[in-house]
Simulated assay, not measured.
Amino acid sequence: MTGQKQRERDLAPALTRGLKILDLIARQGQAVAMSEIAEQLDLAKSSVHGLLATLVAAGYVERLPSGGYRLGLRIVQLANARLDSAALPAEFYALWEQHTTFREEASILAVLDGADVVYVACRNSRHALGVTFRLGMRLPACCTATGKALLSTMSDDEVRAFYARHDMSVLTRRSVPGIDELLVQLAEIRTRGSSIDDGETRDHMWSAGAPVRTSDGRRAEAAVAISFLRSDMTANKAEMAGDFIRRFAAKLSESQVAPAAGSRGA
C-alpha cells in the first residue's frame, strides 16, 4: 500500500483506511494522537475516530490515558502466529548456535514485503551499531544487505519493474541514490555471491548478506546478514564476513529442502 506508485482500484476503502492507520502507528514506534493520524493520512477526524474505535474494540489498537493510540496485543498475537508457522526462523537460530565465527556480531534473517525487508529473526550485538534489531522491524530493501541480497535474485528488468511500483528510500548519505546505481550493485552481488551495506542503513554500520534460496535454487525466500561497526572493518575482515555469510546462507537453504525426519528418500 504505502509507497506504491501504482494502485489498483480500491474494493474495500474502509479496510484500506484502517490498515493505513495500523501502518502509521507501527512506523511511528510510539503513541500517536488521533489528530496526527487524521492529518498525516489526510482523513476526516470523524472517519478516523470511527476507525480507531473499531480497531480498539478488536484489540488491534490500544488507547492510552494520554489520549494517544498504540498497537494492541492482538497484533503481537498475529505476528507470533505467523512466525510460529514458519520453520525458517527456528532453523536460523539453531544453525547460528553451531557456529563460533562472528558469534558476537549482530545477525539477521529477513524476508521481502513490498519495498521493505521485514526481520523475522535477529540477534543483537553488544556493539553500538546505531540500530537495535527487533522482530517485525522494517527497513528499505534497497539500503540493506538482506534487501539487496534478495533483489539480486531478480533480473534487471524485474528490478526496474519492481521500482516502477515502489519508491526507493534513502536513509544515509551513503544510501544508493537511484535505480541505475542499484543495478550496478546487484550485478556485483551476483558475481560475488554476497551483498554489502556500507553505511547505507546506519552511518556507523557495515553488513554482509546473502540470499536463502528456494528449493529450485532460482529465487530467494529470505536473506541473512551479519553486521559490524564500520570502524572495525578491514579488507581481510570484510572478505571473511562475505565468505561466512555465503556459507551460512547455503546451509540454511539446504535445511529447507532436506527430507523431514521419518520421511522416505526417493
Rank of each mutant, 00 (worst) to 15 (best):
82 R>F: 12
82 R>S: 14
82 R>C: 12
84 D>A: 11
85 S>K: 09
90 A>P: 02
93 Y>K: 06
100 T>I: 11
102 F>I: 09
102 F>N: 11
102 F>M: 08
103 R>I: 11
103 R>G: 03
105 E>H: 14
105 E>D: 12
109 L>P: 05
110 A>I: 08
111 V>P: 07
115 A>F: 04
115 A>S: 13
116 D>M: 09
120 V>I: 15
120 V>C: 08
121 A>S: 14
121 A>N: 13
124 N>V: 07
124 N>K: 06
124 N>A: 09
124 N>T: 14
128 A>F: 14
129 L>K: 10
129 L>C: 08
131 V>Q: 11
132 T>V: 13
134 R>K: 13
135 L>V: 15
135 L>K: 12
141 A>P: 03
145 A>E: 01
145 A>M: 01
148 K>Q: 11
148 K>F: 00
149 A>V: 03
149 A>R: 04
150 L>M: 13
151 L>A: 04
156 D>A: 11
158 E>W: 03
160 R>G: 00
163 Y>G: 00
169 S>W: 01
172 T>G: 07
174 R>V: 00
175 S>M: 04
176 V>F: 02
176 V>T: 15
176 V>A: 00
177 P>D: 05
178 G>P: 01
178 G>N: 15
181 E>F: 07
184 V>M: 10
186 L>H: 02
187 A>E: 14
188 E>Y: 00
188 E>D: 12
191 T>W: 00
193 G>M: 05
193 G>W: 02
194 S>L: 03
195 S>N: 08
195 S>Y: 07
197 D>K: 04
197 D>T: 06
198 D>W: 13
198 D>G: 07
198 D>K: 08
199 G>R: 14
200 E>R: 08
202 R>C: 12
205 M>N: 01
205 M>E: 08
206 W>K: 04
207 S>T: 06
211 P>R: 01
211 P>E: 01
212 V>C: 05
214 T>D: 14
215 S>W: 05
